[in-house]
């Protein structure tokens, strides 16, 4: 969040230097740091996944850092839902922001200039976010422009006005939805529904923890994926599944391990006994076990004693008579 705040300061600074518009409400001038750490992407994008959409802020007049932050945060969030799975990256490089804004000053080749900046930021397409206010008390005017990274031509645009304290992803939903025709389509996704016969089991897809059962369907790219389910007391479950766009359901029936089986059997016995009431004495196992044990023990004792009788302790000698 600190890096993002710093970024907005950079962006605002760039705006003030390029557009020469007053930035009276900007609290601090941007520090001279060329490589600020990029903000984390708003939506997960795998390194090998499709090229993301880059968001390039174009700050305008009467803009405060709080408004800029709120606008860009809400924008990246809402864009993430539109290009789901592709990823949205907020451009953090103040130089790129400044260069993009400078493109507008060019009389010729402005579009190609902007496209080049989008490409330089690593996007398949870029969304320029122009935020400004007519005055410090006026509503915030937000204008979006989707730029093709190759030609720089606008593909779609949309605009809205919101009160300064009413900027949110939900408030921008309809406006950003108008950009969808110009944005790259979200990558094809399939889903895995992991149905586990016991609750509380740890579910993982491709080694990445999804959560404890029951879990919601997990969206993954089509192809082969490994589902593994683990819970103490049960044998581990692991299975490779082929996910299509139609999705796949995996029924993970965890089998109790030996200890759990024994515990369940004991519980079953106790439950049965409670349900059926106390058994008569002659149906209790320990009665017959004890009877058998007494019989065996007595036999052993008799046998030992009888065996001992064969072993004379000595020839009996009569007493001596005086």
């Amino acid at each position: 969040m600190k890096a993002r705040t710093l970024f907005f300061a950079l962006a605002l600074g760039a705006a003030s230097s390029v557009s020469a518009q007053p930035a009276a409400e900007v609290e601090a001038p941007p520090p001279e740091q060329p490589d600020v750490a990029p903000a984390p992407p708003a939506a997960p994008a795998t390194p090998d996944g499709p090229a993301p959409v880059v968001v390039i802020p174009v700050p305008g007049a009467n803009l405060t850092e709080a408004i800029a932050n709120a606008t860009l945060t809400a924008t990246t969030t809402q864009l993430g839902t539109v290009v789901r799975g592709r990823g949205v990256r907020l451009v953090a490089d103040g130089a790129v922001v400044a260069a993009t804004m400078a493109c507008a000053q060019q009389e010729e080749g402005a579009a190609a200039c902007r496209g080049a900046q989008v490409a330089a930021a690593g996007g398949a397409s870029g969304v320029l976010v122009n935020v400004s206010r007519a005055s410090a008390d006026a509503p915030v005017s937000i204008r979006y422009e989707v730029i093709d990274s190759v030609t720089g031509d606008p593909r779609a645009s949309a605009a809205t006005e919101l009160p300064a304290d009413g900027i949110s992803a939900a408030a921008l939903q309809d406006t950003i939805a108008q950009l969808a025709p110009g944005l790259p389509a979200p990558p094809a996704r399939g889903s895995i529904l992991v149905a586990v016969n016991v609750d509380g089991a740890m579910v993982a897809v491709d080694g990445q923890m999804v959560g404890e059962s029951p879990v919601a369907p997990v969206e993954v790219p089509p192809g082969s994926h490994t589902v593994s389910v683990n819970r103490a007391g049960f044998q581990p479950y692991s299975r490779s599944v082929e996910v299509t766009l139609d999705g796949v359901r995996v029924n993970a029936d965890l089998q109790p391990d030996e200890e759990e089986m024994a515990r369940l059997a004991d519980l079953e016995d106790e439950a049965r006994e409670q349900a059926e009431g106390p058994k008569p004495w002659y149906k209790r196992w320990y009665v017959w076990a004890a009877a058998g044990a007494v019989l065996v023990g007595a036999s052993v004792a008799v046998g030992v004693a009888a065996g001992g009788a064969d072993d004379p302790q000595g020839f009996n000698v009569p007493p001596i008579l005086p």
Binding site: A265, V294, A305
Partner: peptide
């Protein structure tokens, strides 16, 4: 299984006790 253990241990223990008692009652010659 807990009951399995008991079903094994209890008879063995009983048999041992009964044997010991029976032999003990005979007294040493």
């Amino acid at each position: 299984r807990k009951t399995s253990i008991m079903k094994t241990v209890v008879p063995l223990l009983c048999a041992f006790l009964v044997s010991a008692s029976a032999l003990g009652c005979g007294g040493d010659p």
